[in-house]
């Protein structure tokens, strides 16, 4: 890809990020109700309150507050959480790994499941199998993660209790990990029982997140595969005597994957957005759940930090998808 395009994309991403910051800032400033009132001990004097205000910079005009905040953010300082009395960066760094592991696990499940759907319905195209999958796919697509999450809680957590429905790991297991990347670190240290427990906790929320995405991937991939299957090179591959499975995987899937990939990227950002409510439902200790708490507690610095985190993740995912698309498409790579 030419340098100019890369530059203009990066610039556009930065502009978007700046826009996100402005919107968050403005939004949060119009919250009625004084965040300071939550923090004052009974019997605090007006002077105490004013001091607190000054401490959080709430006494300045709004554009100055933005400027102060903006400069701080650029320096990597997101302030202190009002409700948790800790650095916002520290809190987010604590919680972000949980969300990342969940989202990536869900993504992997969605890709495998969606790819499987597409392959099966392409292989059996024109039969009842294809129609059945299409209908099932339609339901998976129409019903959002919120409903799937609650359904799983109810069915697999309570009625037929086979999987845990709350938290990230069994509190009685102390794995003594140094980081919050339970799976990564657990694997690295060969604590497989612990990893297994974490995976079990992740399975239902990840399924809820993965279902709609799997449906999208399945549908798009199937459509592009169907287009590819009538191409001359597929016919020639058949004449070369290659097996159907090899044709499907080696010839068709590769060509169909690139268009499906771009869409998967966009949808993955939706999946990350979905972690907010899904984590809530499963009491999962990630940044989505934290964000709802932050809003309910009117914790301005924390809200700002979290929304900014989501914005940055969004932009990184988009750039990664762009890069991957170019890398996977030999035509673009050499252009």
């Amino acid at each position: 890809m030419p340098l100019s395009i890369i530059l203009s994309r990066a610039l556009s991403a930065l502009l978007t990020l700046f826009g996100v910051m402005v919107v968050v800032f403005v939004l949060v400033r119009v919250v009625p109700g004084d965040p300071i009132s939550m923090m004052i001990a009974p019997g605090a004097t007006d002077a105490d309150i004013a001091a607190l205000r000054a401490h959080y910079g709430l006494d300045l005009p709004i554009w100055q507050q933005f400027w102060v905040w903006f400069k701080q953010v650029l320096q990597g300082n997101l302030g202190t959480s009002i409700s948790m009395k800790q650095g916002v960066i520290t809190i987010i760094a604590q919680r972000l790994p949980a969300t990342l592991e969940l989202a990536i696990f869900a993504l992997i499940m969605a890709v495998i499941w969606g790819g499987f759907i597409a392959l099966v319905s392409t292989a059996w195209r024109g039969t009842w199998v294809e129609r059945a999958i299409d209908n099932f796919n339609g339901i998976m697509l129409a019903v959002p993660d919120f409903i799937w999450a609650l359904t799983f809680v109810l069915v697999l957590g309570v009625l037929v209790p086979v999987l845990p429905i709350s938290g990230r790991s069994d509190p009685s297991i102390d794995a003594g990990l140094a980081t919050q990347f339970y799976i990564l670190e657990g694997l690295a240290r060969a604590k497989f029982a612990f990893v297994w427990d974490v995976l079990k906790h992740m399975l239902l929320p990840a399924c809820a997140l993965a279902f709609p995405l799997a449906a999208v991937i399945g549908r798009v991939l199937k459509n592009t595969m169907m287009d590819v299957m009538v191409q001359d090179y597929i016919t020639l591959a058949r004449i070369k005597g290659l097996s159907s499975i090899r044709i499907l995987l080696q010839e068709a899937l590769r060509n169909a994957a690139v268009p499906a990939l771009a869409l998967t990227g966009v949808q993955f950002t939706f999946l990350i957005g979905g972690t907010v409510i899904t984590e809530r439902i499963f009491s999962y200790p990630g940044i989505g759940n934290l964000a709802i708490d932050a809003v309910i507690n009117r914790d301005l610095p924390l809200i700002q930090g979290l929304v900014l985190t989501f914005g940055i993740i969004f932009i990184i995912v988009n750039m990664a998808v762009d890069a991957l698309t170019v890398w996977l498409n030999p035509r673009l790579r050499h252009a």
């Binding site: 939004l27 989505g288 809003v295």
Partner: peptide, 19 residues
């Protein structure tokens, strides 16, 4: 639209209603 897409919609709606 780009900026809006960068917000998780559920979080934004919760934030808005809180506001």
């Amino acid at each position: 639209v780009d900026i809006w897409m960068a917000f998780p919609p559920v979080l934004l709606s919760i934030l808005l209603v809180a506001v």
